[in-house]
Every structure is written in structure tokens, then in C-alpha cells.
Design a protein around this nucleic acid. Structure first.
Lengths: 119, 119
DNA sequence: CCTTCTCATCGTCAATCGCCGATTAATCGC
DNA sequence: GCGATTAATCGGCGATTGACGATGAGAAGG
């Protein structure tokens, strides 16, 4: 288990990848949209909105929490989930960086007239 | 293999998730950055830039191609990879949509004064 | 034609994912 | 305290992922 290949990549690439991975499941996207829609951050009502079991939803929430996209505040017997402003700011910044790089590259392509590669 | 739970989610959520999943690995992020940096879209030089075997890189490229982020044009015995403008436009649009939703929700939180949930 | 070079594909393996039911933990109302 | 409610965790399962070496397919060059 020692000497992960992952260590060979930059910290930023790993960070972006981890965030993207967390976003890489429809259920988690749906959860995030739900939390965004109801500014009031509900808790296990999420379970009833999704076609998944309680334990599965809990795991998805755990993953989202692990990468900092979601916060869970304990409110009596229930837990109140909401979007984490800090995590989202970071996420937007990291993706914006990636998108900028790719966009300028694509613009360069278009400028060159070629519809695809310029080799 | 029949009756995927995935079918229960919206098409947009599935699309975003599929793209995010493709971005969910440091090696693939590194590949995309490489292709963006060298406007000249190189081919298997990627292999030498990454700490991965040729077959592994080929698989990552296949995944990126599958979701439309990358194009591979055959150029003699070699293959020339480059970013796919169409795929990236779609990706940016889908992520922008998601980011907008989450941002307005977070702004609402801040406005309310609470540092987190408002339950 | 045969060799060489480049890349895709195959087969394999361990590790992880996604899902579930069942169990545990914690809190509130009584 | 006790039962009820809510959510996290455990254990297990089939499927997928990520990695590799080895093999296969296609085009250039001799």
C-alpha cells in the first residue's frame, strides 16, 4: 500500500480530482441541488426525495462532507445539512483555473482555423 | 445489470456526474492540463510525462474521449490528441449551472448572518 | 515483404464503489 | 429511566476502477 502513484501528481491536481470525484455521482449532484434549492438546509428529508435507502444517502453525505462541500450541524436528534461556503469557494476557484486553461487552448485552436488538432 | 438506480435521476444530473467522474482522477487532470498547455496536441508523449504505463495512459485517454473532453485524430502511425471544444463548452455550461445554484444558496446563508445552517 | 514504431486492447489482479439491511448511538418527549 | 425517532456505522455483496504486462493491429520505412 506504500508508494501511491497519486503522489506523483501535483497537489492541485489531486485536490481538483478529489472534488470532481465527489461530484461524480448523480445522487450526490441531486443532493447538492436539493440543499441549494431549499436554502433551509434540511437533514434526512433528503432520504425521502431520493430513490435510495437511508444508509446509502448517509454515505453520500459523508463523502460530500469529507471533501468540504457540505456541513452537517447537529440539531437535537436530527442533523441539519447545508452547503459549505468555504468548500464551494475553493471548488469554484479550482475548476475556474482548469476551465481557463482549457478554454484558452480551445480558443487557440479555433483561431488557427482547424476544427480539431493542429498537428 | 437491469434496472439501474441511475435512471431515477435527471438527465442533467447524470451528465454532470459523468463528466465529473471523468475529471475525478489526478492522472486525467494532468493529461488535460498537458493538452491545454501544449496547444500542439501531442500524442503518446503524454506517456513520458506521466508516471504511468502506456496502457494505463491509453485507458485514461479512452475515458476522456468517451465523455467528449478529448479528441484523437489518427496521424500516420501515431495518434494526435487534443481538447474537444464542443465537449468543453458543454462541460463549462453544466458546471456553471451547478455552481450558480450553489452560489446563490451560499449567498443567502451569508446574508442571513449565520455562518452555517439556518435551521 | 518484413521490421519497427505507436497505440489500442486483452487478461488479470487488488482495491474501491455503491448499494442494502441490520445494528448501534444519540437525543428528545414522556 | 423508557420508548420513539433519527442518523451513523457495520458487514456483506456484486460491479467497477486503476494498474500492469503482454498481445494485437496499422502505418511508415527500409
Amino acid at each position: 500500500m506504500a508508494l501511491h502513484k497519486h503522489d506523483q501528481f501535483t497537489a492541485e491536481d489531486q485536490e481538483v480530482a478529489a472534488l470532481a470525484k465527489a461530484l461524480g455521482h448523480p445522487a450526490r449532484i441531486a443532493i447538492l441541488r436539493l440543499l441549494a434549492a431549499r436554502q433551509s438546509c434540511i437533514c434526512g428529508d433528503i432520504v425521502q426525495e431520493l430513490p435510495l435507502s437511508q444508509s446509502t444517502v448517509s454515505q453520500h453525505l459523508k463523502e460530500l462532507k469529507a471533501v468540504g462541500l457540505v456541513r452537517g450541524d447537529i440539531d437535537g436528534p436530527r442533523v441539519c445539512y447545508c452547503l459549505d461556503a468555504v468548500g464551494w469557494a475553493k471548488t469554484r476557484a479550482l475548476f475556474a483555473d482548469l476551465f481557463d486553461q482549457t478554454q484558452t487552448s480551445v480558443e487557440f485552436q479555433n483561431q488557427a482555423g482547424a476544427p480539431g488538432c493542429a498537428c
